[in-house]
Design a protein around this nucleic acid. Sequence first.
DNA 1: CAACCGACCTGTTCGC
DNA 2: TGCGAACAGGTCGGTT
Length: 281
Amino acid sequence: MPELPEVETIARQLRPRLLQRHFDAVEILWARTVERPSPAEFVYELLKTSVLEVGRRGKFLSFNLNTGKTWLVHLRMTGKFRIQEAGTPAKDDLHTRARFLLDDGTRLDYVDPRKFGRFYLVENSHIITGALGPEPLSPEFTTTWLSTALQSHRGEIKRLLLDQNFLAGLGNIYVNEALWRAGIHPLRAAQTLTEAEATCLHGTIVSVLREGVEHGGATLSDRQYVYPDGSSGQQQLHLAVYDRAGERCPRCGYTLERIVQAQRSTYFCPICQPCTRPGDG
DNA sequence: CAACCGACCTGTTCGC
DNA sequence: TGCGAACAGGTCGGTT
């Protein structure tokens, strides 16, 4: 499910539920969910600790613990958290991979059908997130930075924007949307973007992510819950191109196209996103 | 280096 | 209806 806006929404929902709470019980039902340390050590280290801070870095959720360690979660494709209120009959999901009992009686389930999501418990979050690129919604992500950074990359702009070590948090949905809004063809070589295009792209990356957060992220699959409290996002109603091959471009009315790039679907408008830069013919 | 590909997994949808 | 192929919001590691 999650790109930056979805992970941010999850963090915001979990924060008030987890701050100052202790873990009274921790169960790992699918061992490979815990990347490090071992599942047994993970359980041992988490038990009886409390949560001082809930945050996000790129697509990672982070929980700072009173032991000084940090629990990081990457949800990958299908990871989800679900809060089950104290005193209500707990519903079991076939795909629950880990369970946490909090000291207020709340149960926190980690559900992940495809088992791709990973937990990390580390002394310093930098061990896991240190190589990530800048946060697109932070002051360090500036037009100047983007414009300059693009110049040293010969590869396709879409692939580059999906690279978390270049910029942290964009995924397939928001990259497609940002490029469409900026009128930039996804196959363009990054370093061929003009300064004006880089400036525009910077603006669309920020706006598409901000809107995503404002709308509570995108919920693509209609089944089950998505967020810890059982709610869904609304950003999917505002997507112009993602998963819309064959439909009309909201801007010009031409038929949207799908191509495959780095083994992932790319959606774009061949009219609004010409494959050459302005003035090249 | 960059591009490519399989691996990791399960579920849903689409085409014949 | 059934069955296999393609596809899915992500990333890593090994090979050209």
